[in-house]
Amino acid sequence: MSAEIDGGPLLEAVDVHKAFGPTPALDGAAIRLWPGEVVAVMGPSGSGKSTLLHCLAGILRPDSGTVYYRGAELSSMSDVARSELRRTDFGFVFQFGQLVPELTCLENVALPLRLGGQRRREAERAATEWLERLEVADVANKRPGETSGGQGQRVAVARALVTGPKVVFADEPTGALDSLNGERVMKLLVNAAKDTGAAVVLVTHEARVAAYSDREVVVRDGRTRQVELAQ
């Protein structure tokens, strides 16, 4: 898995603009993500953090500007190609609501593998390993609605990582959790990402959560700002 093709950035957004109706959400945002690094995207509510994440992940198509993933232009890919990318190369952890309430936790974690065509047995074996790794093996056969918030988020992390993604997009992953559970989720997420070599785009407004990152990017009024500290 020699991810670093020609040493360039894994994911790069250049001068991305995106508006919802008359409201601009991104107004010339730029970011680079290198393989394996954890980048915190910070900024006040409504600054465009989540929109930037969605554009980076290929969920939203920017109005203008380009997003490159491993050198390929993400915004010009077909829906099928971007879907496949989400399935194989990307993982997602949101504040809540990304688990399918109808499926058990185990099935939720196995879902991306099964969507990719893996057989149920194999998919669920891999899912079980990840649930154990995230210390939530005990809720494997419960539905998301029957677990606590912290357990649900750890299940979500397991699901994000089960495919061995290159990038994990985490949008306020601890937003609905208390400090203890938040810390636990962050620790497991960052450790697991480091272990598998996945880069993490971590959208948060909490400095304590951002402190798990390797560096931070600040979004303000739809524009990104990177501060280099004179060491």
Partner: peptide, 20 residues
């Protein structure tokens, strides 16, 4: 503010690493 935040975060990263 940005510089201060960057500095704060740098310290916080160190603390977080130690914590882990």
């Amino acid at each position: 503010l940005d510089v201060q935040r960057a500095s704060h975060l740098e310290t916080m990263r160190g603390l977080t690493r130690r914590k882990l």
